[in-house]
């Protein structure tokens, strides 16, 4: 920092100096370009998760599990040892790992189709056993990877490629609030719902992930951080419009905040 400068006459070269650095990409993310659509919340969720790993200094003790879905390639981006699980089975895979290596930090990163449809049994039972793992649950109310089909979390009336006239709850059932469900289980020590669409939301979500990993360190049981996110391609909206739509429509049904702490 140079005291000889006045702020109004500073050149960019004077500002862009190593000593003035306040934010850069964490080294716990790889250099690979993310495969997600522009504006997708997955990228931000990846980043804050890896920032927590970096700040806790646990890169060498962390094992992640990527699901089937858009984040199937999460291991291309997260610079930690990772396993790719069969669709829905990430909590079982995490259980298998954590039980043989209880001193490691184990997390799953799962979408709503993976966690709340095909993997409901694995999710509920890992929660109920109080497996000492952290589940990061990305809920965007749709199947992104396969092209925008209805998910268990799809809102009533919401149009998807398999509910083209809107989700008819009489015929297709109701959207599933799985975080509230698992919060009732004694094995779950922390259940929270966050978002990553604004700077304030990102800060809170990151704090929640920190809390989850800290509870894992203390062997308190299963911690689940749901992140309500957008799916611009699936929702067929521009990213900022999608975030507005998310606030107006998703948040009333999926209210943000801690459900169990």
């Amino acid at each position: 920092m140079s005291a000889s400068h006045d702020s109004d006459t500073l050149l960019l070269e004077d500002i862009i100096r190593p000593e003035n650095l306040v934010f850069e990409k964490t080294a716990c993310l790889t250099d690979n370009t993310l495969s997600y659509c522009p504006g997708c919340g997955h990228g931000t969720a990846h980043r804050i998760l890896m920032e927590v790993v970096e700040e806790m200094g646990i890169q060498g003790q962390t094992i992640g599990i990527a699901p089937v879905g858009c984040s199937v390639l999460a291991y291309d981006f997260m610079n930690v040892d990772m396993q790719q699980a069969a669709h829905g089975r990430a909590p079982a895979v995490a259980t298998g790992i954590k039980r043989v290596m209880p001193e490691k930090y184990v997390f799953t990163y799962q979408g709503d189709g993976d966690l709340a449809a095909i993997g409901t049994a694995e999710t509920i039972h890992a929660c109920n056993r109080g497996e000492n793992i952290t589940i990061i649950f990305i809920n965007n109310g749709i199947y992104g990877m396969t092209g925008g089909q209805m998910a268990p979390t799809t809102l009533a009336g919401m149009r998807t490629s398999t509910s083209p006239f809107g989700r008819d709850t009489e015929m297709m059932g109701h959207p599933l609030r799985i975080t509230e469900m698992v919060a009732t289980l004694p094995g779950v020590c922390f259940a929270t719902r966050q978002a990553v669409h604004t700077p304030a939301a990102v800060r809170k979500a990151k704090k929640a992930i920190q809390t989850a990993f800290e509870l894992q360190r203390q062997r308190k049981g299963l911690s689940l951080v749901e992140i309500v996110s957008n799916c611009n391609s699936g929702w067929k909206m521009m990213p900022r419009k999608a975030n507005d739509w998310m606030e107006e429509n998703m948040f009333p049904f999926y209210p943000l905040g801690d459900i169990k702490k």
């Binding site: 396993q83 069969a86 298998g96 039980r99 043989v100 694995e122």
Partner: peptide, 11 residues
């Protein structure tokens, strides 16, 4: 289904 995937994780 869960047991074989637990095996996968540990393996």
């Amino acid at each position: 289904v869960a047991s074989i995937n637990m095996v996968y994780g540990a393996a």
